[in-house]
């Protein structure tokens, strides 16, 4: 009995220390089913339940290398905003959702660019797109990009032949701190982009201070070195507002996204609806309830899982510490 007492004490002390650490910067796990468990344990990191001022007020001033999106729930989950250094992964479950993810990522890139421009720099954006990704989801379209708020005079597009070239170009670009953002678009979970490669990107990005956005089309969640992984889903746009202030319910307004922060320092996933205003070049939070969906919106189809050609495995038991390689 006496032998057990000391370890038990140590364990309690350690647990206490961990709890203290995590209360300061709540460390994360990934799936929503632990939300209640986590909150029972005292980690109430879910942004909705927190008062806003202490989020936006302190965190932002303390950390200069984050970019607040102006959406409190997301900003809090990302401890202040989008990290301006390092690798962030943005993924969509299906190729047909690629438009939403592209818009969201370009919105982030435009924010980074605006920050650079405020400092009097050119701040070009580099968009590296794997050949297959461009063929499946469409090539970048200059007019549309320009209308979204991207300065085409400061945008470079790269279409490498394979992933190896894409990674090389991304790493080379991260060696030059002129870029305001590097977007690396890939398809699925290629085996050649594993932990080691994402770690290289992460370190290079931390070194040069250029954020990398890994835009993953039709990819599964996978262990990587990215500190942040966001899942983007399409969301119905708010009605179009006419110049006189009336809403045109049949019109389609600003681009809207449903963003789920899958991997953050927050305890549980956080989601938010937001829209991008290309005129003001900023995100606005969007209340999904306020968006009047059309009458026939009741979906008679069940949304099937994206896995095709392989059986869905049994749900994992216990805590998932790291995802298996999806590639």
């Amino acid at each position: 009995m006496a032998e057990n007492a000391v370890p038990r004490e140590t364990v309690l002390a350690l647990r206490d220390a961990i709890a203290r650490l995590e209360r300061d910067r709540p460390s994360g796990s990934c799936l929503s089913r632990w939300e209640t468990e986590g909150e029972r344990a005292g980690f109430s990191a879910s942004g909705r339940s927190l008062p806003m001022p202490d989020v936006t007020g302190q965190d932002v001033t303390r950390q200069a290398d984050v970019l607040p999106l102006g959406v409190p729930t997301l900003d809090h989950a990302m401890s202040g905003g989008l990290p301006l250094k390092g690798l962030s992964e943005i993924r969509v479950a299906e190729t047909r959702d690629a438009g939403a993810a592209t818009g969201f990522t370009l919105g982030l890139a435009a924010l980074c660019q605006a920050r650079r421009k405020a400092r009097g720099e050119l701040g070009p954006i580099l968009w590296i797109s794997e050949t297959m990704a461009g063929q499946e989801a469409g090539e970048p379209y200059g007019v549309g990009l320009s209308l979204l708020g991207i300065d085409l005079r400061a945008a470079l597009f790269s279409r490498p032949r394979n992933l190896q070239q894409a990674l090389w170009i991304a790493e080379a670009a991260l060696g030059f701190s002129v870029f305001s953002a590097v977007i690396l678009e890939i398809r699925g979970n290629p085996a050649r982009l594993g932990l080691a490669e994402s770690r290289r990107l992460q370190l290079r990005s931390l070194g040069s201070g250029v954020p990398v956005f890994l835009l993953r089309q039709a990819g599964e969640e996978e262990a990587s070195s990215a500190h942040l992984r966001l899942l983007v889903r399409p969301a119905p746009a708010a009605p179009f507002m006419l110049p006189d202030g009336t809403m045109l319910t049949t019109g389609i307004g600003h681009p809207a996204f449903h963003v789920i922060a899958e991997k953050t320092r927050a305890f549980s996933p956080v989601d938010a609806y937001l829209e991008w205003s290309s005129h003001a070049r900023r995100f606005h939070p969007l209340d999904p309830v306020a968006v009047p969906l059309p009458a026939n919106a009741a979906d008679p189809f069940t949304v099937l899982s994206a896995s095709v050609g392989r059986p869905g495995g049994a749900p994992a038991l216990g805590r998932v510490m790291a995802f298996k390689r999806a590639s």
Binding site: G99, G138, E139, L147, L152, R153
Partner: peptide
Amino acid sequence: TLQAEEWPVMPVRPLRLLT
């Protein structure tokens, strides 16, 4: 180059165009 802002009417155009 020509900028989209210089166009007389702002059209609605997609971000990605299928080849």
